[in-house]
Amino acid sequence: MHADSDVGDIVRSGDRLIAIVGNYGSGKTEVSVNLSLQLARRGLHVQIADLDIVNPYFRCREASLLMQSNGIRVVVPHGAHAWADLPIILPEIRGMLHPAPGTLSIFDVGGDDVGARALASFRTSIADGDYQLWQVINAKRPFTDSVAGCLAMQRSIETASRFSVTGLLVNSHLIDQTTPETVLEGWRLAQAVSAETGLPIRLVAVMDELADATELRVIDAPILRLTRLMTPPWSVPRPRSLARLQGVRP
């Protein structure tokens, strides 16, 4: 069990398995990789699994080297299979369902209900209360820019995955055009979803350079400071994660 004092500002001591779900392009992978890195840098044993069976690019497997160099156990398809669009669920993932004390498992799940379906086969192996399923909310994405849209997404993900959403993770952004108002829009949307569902807002992801903005002081949920890692190859500064897509041989 990890000490509250070390990581209590972003996760709780009872969080052992966190699966990140949400609609396509809501930023699940960026959040999963950032969360893993920050928890690992605070001394927690972190293992992350890439369960994305729907996206062909910008999957967390592309940040494998970066995460491994920070001591994170990365469970992703190997070799040439890493670059396939095949629905690969590695057998090692089953072993991550009940992590040893002091270890946290993070599942980066694919988008929408079709991506969340990858979780369903694990449902009978895990009891209620032994998992966290956080739905990412980005108010700037089509289909989930309203309470009704977020609720419909929640229902479809729950039906496909057979798990229940246990918390909300606000990740409202427009990449390099994000303003504090963009974040607040997502915060207000998540508050409305929370009021409707009773789900707690577990994290609010904010780009590091905006995280100290005075406008955001109204947010009374834990803040996850984000560094953009899943960037296209022309980004400045250089993307550190997408080793293969940058032309570096694996």
């Binding site: 396509y24 392009g25 700037k140 994405r141 089509p142």
Partner: peptide, 14 residues
């Protein structure tokens, strides 16, 4: 207002 979209989705909406 601006929205965040994948290129493929944006082509569809456009």
């Amino acid at each position: 207002a601006k929205v965040l979209m994948k290129g493929n989705e944006a082509l569809g909406e456009a």
